[in-house]
């Protein structure tokens, strides 16, 4: 059996270890900068952050030393059997899977931004978000257009009646 770890996986491990080590340093410096309070007894507000920064640093070292953070998807290939998939194809497959969740996340971010900046009333933004997200996930067709429109209006109405009338929350 040959352990065939993808180059992509190794780079991800290294990048994660680097991010963790940087985070540990930033955390230590931030904890060090916390001024002692008048109640300070030597175990102040920066004590646990410093302990955690040490733990993070150790874990980043363990990852760099070879404890994989991410199991390679095609780690084991039999001697006589299939070779691991080329990294390009793996990346393409990962992108095909991740594309729609990422698009939905961006759409969600735009929806929240529109409410936060008061560009739209929250109920209008919610209905629009559902309509567009429904089309994104179901694909554009006559049926999906009708269903998305109906669902977005009905759900928005139900959610807003529930929160504003039953729970008396003032929504933006």
């Amino acid at each position: 059996m040959v352990e065939a770890k993808s180059v992509l996986g190794r780079w991800i491990d290294r990048a994660v270890a680097l991010v963790l080590a940087s985070l540990a340093i930033v955390l230590w410096l931030s904890a060090d900068a916390i001024p002692p309070s008048f109640l300070d007894t030597g175990f102040g507000a920066g004590y646990l952050p410093k302990l955690l920064s040490v733990a993070l640093f150790v874990l980043s070292g363990l990852i760099l030393a070879g404890t994989p953070l991410r199991k390679p998807r095609h780690a084991v290939a039999s001697d006589a059997g299939t070779a691991p998939a080329p990294d390009g194809r793996l990346a393409d497959r990962a992108w095909a899977v991740a594309r729609r969740p990422l698009a939905l996340a961006v759409l969600l971010g735009v929806f929240v931004l529109a409410i936060d900046l008061r560009l739209l009333d929250s109920y209008v933004a919610a209905a629009l978000f559902q309509f567009v997200a429904g089309l994104l996930l179901a694909g554009v067709s006559r049926r999906s257009l009708i269903l998305s429109a109906c669902c977005s209006i009905l759900v928005t109405l139900a959610v807003y009646l529930l929160f504003t009338r039953v729970f008396t929350v003032i929504l933006p």
Binding site: L104, V112, G134, A138, L147, T156, V159, Y160
Partner: peptide, 24 residues
């Protein structure tokens, strides 16, 4: 169909989280 369920639940997440402290 999840295509219509997922966006509806995401709207519930946004509204429900906002409603607790009224903070964006």
């Amino acid at each position: 169909p999840k295509a219509y369920l997922v966006p509806a639940l995401l709207v519930c997440c946004v509204v429900g989280t906002y409603a607790v402290n009224n903070r964006m």
